[in-house]
Structures are given as C-alpha cells and as structure tokens.
C-alpha cells in the first residue's frame, strides 16, 4: 500500500510539473490567438510581448492560462491532450485506418520483432564463436564494440540507401537497423554468461572426458540463461529504437517513426507526443513480456 502511494506520488509530481511547464511554453501562442480573436491582451502588440519574459506574460494575462492547455498546436501539449489523442487514435479508430496508432505501432512492431529475432540469433552465434575461439574473441569483439560507437541516426540512411540499391526495401531495411542495435547487448551478455561457469565446473567435466559440445549444451548454455534474459530486455528496447529510426529517412509512410516525422512536418505536436508515448508503452510491454518469459523459464529450470 505504501509502495502504491509512493509510485502514485511520483506520477502525480511528473504530471503536475508537466502541466506547469505547459503554461510558459504555450503562453505566447495563446496570446497571439487571443489578440486575433479581439480580446484585450497586455501588452497588445506581439512585437512588445517579445521583450517580456513568459512568466511576466502569465502574471499580466491570467485569463490565458486555461487556454495554454487547450491549444490546437501547442509547443508543449498538456498531458490530457496527449491522453485524448492516444485514446482517439487507438480505441476510436479502426485499426486498419492509416490514422490509427495501433496500425502504425504494428508496422513498427513487426520490423522490431524481425530485427530482434535476427539480432538475437546473430548475437548468440557470435558469442558462441567468441567463447570457443580465441581468434574470434580477438577479431570480432573489437568490431562489435566499434559498431556501436557509430551514431545509428548517421548510419540508418546509408543502410536504407544501400539496401534499396540492391532491390531490398520495405520491412527488411528497418529490421536490419533493429538487428544492428540489438545484437550487441546479446553478444556481451552471452559471452559473459557462457563464461560464467568456474574452473571447478570445467575441471569436473574434464574428469568425465566430456567433449566441447557436451560442455556447451550441459553446462555453458544453461548457466548463461539469466545473462541472456538480461541482455534480451536491453536488446528488445534497442530494437524498437532501431525500427523507429529506420522509418525516419524513408520519407515516412507508416510506423511510429512516420508519425513522429509527419507530426514534426506539420507542427502536430500532440501527434508527436502521442507517438512517443505509444513507442514507450510498446517498449514497456515488450520488456514486461520478456520478464514474464524469463520468470517462467528460470522457474522451470529450478533457478528462480
């Protein structure tokens, strides 16, 4: 009960701060609209208002505060506007509609899952290679690290252009970018996990004359499971980011990235924020789902 209260308090503080921040962010726009509607604004001219800071404008025009939370295209939309937009574009719209956030989320999610599967597979394969071969450890690991130092926003357009020029488009380029971001945590986590058995465990297998393959399937792989799940949680969030970034340079037809881009083209800030929250909720669901799978798997293995 106490914990629930603490959590709710944090949420309330964030929302209160958000509402408070919306007022100075939007006050100038509201006053311009009010001036055009013929209301008395202090000072009346926009040029004069530019000389005065936002907080003074609020004090001079307290009637405008309510309107800062109800603008069509606010600089910073208020929480309830974002919530309304989210409700409107998920529940009220048919999911086949191009204006449905569920439709766009599905477009992004499909690329995310494909990229995540691909990245996880690649990551596990690389980790197995790195653990079993000193040459791979020394040759692959540095490149894996270097790959993550390049900003994905710079790399994504190149990947899309290169793949397009060889005739690959649609979901694949996005999935490739997703995989590019998600394989790395899996490599790092799995290398750590596959190396987690101590010398004694390895010696024990040697006394049985076990082969490398037996050591892998019976000891290293099961021992790596907790590490794998920790990596997968990071990996799936990175996959989602990758898919969204992959949607930005294509001119944005569909997907959460497209909603973000279209929103910024047309100044639809409410749309941008609702797409952002849509992405955040999606990420939370994916990570939560992995958490459930982790619990089930480890419990079955007798480790949780």
């Amino acid at each position: 009960m106490k914990q629930v209260l603490a959590v709710l308090t944090v949420v309330a503080v964030i929302i209160a701060f958000w509402y408070a921040a919306s007022v100075p962010m939007n006050i100038r726009g509201v006053l311009v609209e009010a001036e055009r509607a013929g209301e008395v604004v202090d000072p009346p001219k926009a040029a004069d208002r530019r000389q005065i800071d936002e907080f003074e404008l609020i004090l001079d025009n307290p009637f405008a505060i309510d309107d800062t939370w109800e603008q069509e295209r606010p600089r910073l939309p208020a929480p309830h506007q974002v919530a309304e937009e989210l409700w409107d574009t998920t529940v009220e719209k048919k999911i086949t509609s191009k204006r449905s956030l569920v439709y766009h989320a599905w477009v992004t999610l499909s690329a995310t899952l494909l990229g995540f599967a691909f990245g996880t597979g690649l990551g596990i394969l690389l980790a197995v290679g790195i653990v079993h071969s000193k040459v791979m450890d020394m040759s692959v690991m540095p490149w894996a690290i270097v790959s993550q130092t390049i900003p994905i926003i710079a790399l994504a357009p190149m990947i899309i252009v290169v793949l397009y020029s060889v005739g690959v488009q649609g979901i694949i380029p996005k999935a490739v970018i997703s995989a590019y971001l998600s394989f790395f945590p899996v490599v790092v986590g799995m290398v750590k996990g596959l190396r987690s058995p101590d010398m004694m465990q390895l010696d024990l297998l040697r006394t049985y004359g076990a082969s490398k393959a037996q050591g892998f399937w019976k000891l290293r792989l099961p021992a790596s499971m907790p590490y794998l799940f920790a990596s997968l949680k990071i990996g799936i969030a990175a996959s989602l980011v990758g898919a969204i970034v992959g949607e930005l340079p294509t001119g944005a037809v569909a997907g959460l990235g497209a909603r973000l881009l279209a929103g910024s083209y047309y100044g639809q800030t409410v749309q941008i924020w609702s797409a952002l929250f849509g992405a955040a909720i999606l990420a939370a669901c994916l990570v939560g789902l992995l958490g459930l799978i982790e619990r089930a798997v480890l419990k079955r293995m007798g480790m949780a």
């Binding site: 010696d203 024990l204 006394t207 049985y208 004359g209 099961p222 499971m225």
Partner: peptide
C-alpha cells in the same frame, strides 16, 4: 576415477537425481 571437489558444484538447474545423471549422460 571419480573426483570430488571442495565445493559440491551441483548444477542449480538440475535436480539432485539429474545432477547425478550428468556423468552418466556424458558417458
């Protein structure tokens, strides 16, 4: 020979019976 180390070193993901089966599976 069978070797017993200072730590029991049982696999936490295997039951006692399946831990004892480990060398038998390998062999």
């Amino acid at each position: 020979y069978g070797y017993v180390f200072q730590a029991a070193g049982l696999y936490p993901w295997r039951t006692i019976a399946r831990n004892i089966k480990l060398p038998l599976e390998i062999m």
